[in-house]
Amino acid sequence: MTAKISFREVVKTYPMKDTTFTALDRVSLDVADQEFVTVVGPSGCGKSTLLNMAAGLAEPTAGEVLVDGVPVTGPGPDRGVIFQQYALFPWLTVRGNVEFGLKLTGLPAEERRRRAEQAIELVGLSDFADALPKTLSGGMRQRCAIARAYAVDPQVLLMDEPFGALDALTRVQMQDQLLRTWSRMRRTVMFITHDVDEAVYLAGRVVVMASRPGRVHTIVDVDLPYPRTEEMRFSPEFGRIRNAVWHSVYHQAPAA
């Protein structure tokens, strides 16, 4: 497998009053091109810190983060980032929000419109292209945020608990929508979540983090075919994988 994202002995520390807090300690991980990887772990294990480094929003204290073999030195159009909060401009329509990132690239208006319409259709919001965010449900707002990320055609999608604020039914629907979109576009996805079922349902591999200091505890392969279906959630194989991840997350030995 060719690594799209690589973490090499990554360390992240923060100065405190009388000491230094180690958020991440020598984390090494490869995410392959077009792979869908989820990252789970107890609170404070450094999941979001790891994603922010891949996004170029934070720098490692030691080690390095690479995309396509090139060290990450800051944000870039090759990486789309989606957070739990939708961060939409309330005065812009769905189309306006999706086009906003494209304007920054200097694309002509006609090409911006074409790519925005394509991304909006991809996430199933064509009927709401002229709607303002305040008129949309939480799930629809998050779909708009995903469309905005897809519109700039990133090779990597970095998602930090994007469905965490949604109700249970909408969350499941959004998982299916995301997988349908991913199956068509096949971008590399690194998806942070605290939900074990979500982690297993979406991913080809689940990375389980340990905390204090944050480090890779184990990696669980999800040997379930795509497309994922509702029936799979209730299958013995899904239950076996889920239990393995659950045990790794919540029954970790303390750090040495």
Rank of each mutant, 00 (worst) to 15 (best):
S211K: 13
V11M: 12
W182S: 05
G96V: 01
A149H: 04
A203W: 10
Y226P: 05
D127C: 00
L102R: 09
P60D: 08
C45R: 04
W182M: 04
R114A: 15
V10S: 10
D33E: 13
T218C: 14
V65K: 05
L125D: 08
Q177V: 01
I192S: 10
L158G: 03
G138Q: 03
F83H: 07
F21E: 12
E231L: 08
D176S: 08
D68Q: 06
L157S: 07
A244H: 15
A23H: 02
V40W: 06
P108L: 06
R233I: 08
I146D: 10
V72M: 11
S6G: 04
V220L: 03
D221E: 13
V65E: 09
R112W: 03
V222I: 02
E35T: 03
V249T: 04
I82T: 02
A149S: 11
A199T: 11
V94L: 02
G239W: 12
M53H: 10
Q85W: 13
F7G: 00
T73H: 02
P77E: 02
L104M: 15
D127F: 02
E231P: 05
R79K: 15
L107T: 14
A119W: 02
E99T: 03
A87S: 15
L166A: 05
P71Y: 11
K134W: 07
R113A: 14
D176C: 02
V206C: 13
L29G: 03
A87M: 14
P154T: 00
L158T: 04
G74M: 13
Q177M: 03
G76T: 02
A147I: 07
V222K: 01
L157R: 06
A255M: 09
G204D: 10
V67F: 13
A54P: 11
V37P: 04
R112I: 01
F128R: 08
A256Y: 12
H217I: 01
L88M: 03
P254C: 00
L104A: 15
A165T: 08
K12N: 06
F83I: 04
S43W: 02
A253Q: 15
A210W: 11
L122S: 07
V196K: 11
D223N: 07
